[in-house]
Amino acid sequence: MSELISRDVVLHVAWLARLFLTDEQIEAMTKQFNEILSYFRKLDRVDTSNVPLELYVTPLKDITREDIVEASLNPDEALKNAPKREGKYFKAPKMM
């Protein structure tokens, strides 16, 4: 089977997804990627050149709401599940 996706692409995707894999995992994943994707490429057989790009499955449209304020959560409730907090803030890791 010819390779659809190289190890480098899998590495890049893993970086985009922030899922860092060990060397063995990358090897295994590259193999699986190729198996699964070549199955997915079955879609190549479908001629879609005249099929409009329909972004939605639902026939609904024009669903909006009015600009009216409703109650927010109470702050203790909002922060209750935070793994780390400081005062009334959620505490996240440093950025750099």
Binding site: R65, D67, I68, V69, S72, K88
Partner: peptide, 30 residues
């Protein structure tokens, strides 16, 4: 539908499941 007037408020007081991104919450356009 949280108030957009967030300035000079205590932190995390105008938040709801949707703007906190809680699982199960959904957006509706203003």
């Amino acid at each position: 539908s949280c108030s957009a007037d967030y300035r000079e408020l205590e932190p995390n007081t105008v938040v709801c499941p949707t703007c906190l991104g809680l699982p199960g919450s959904l957006p509706v356009v203003n």
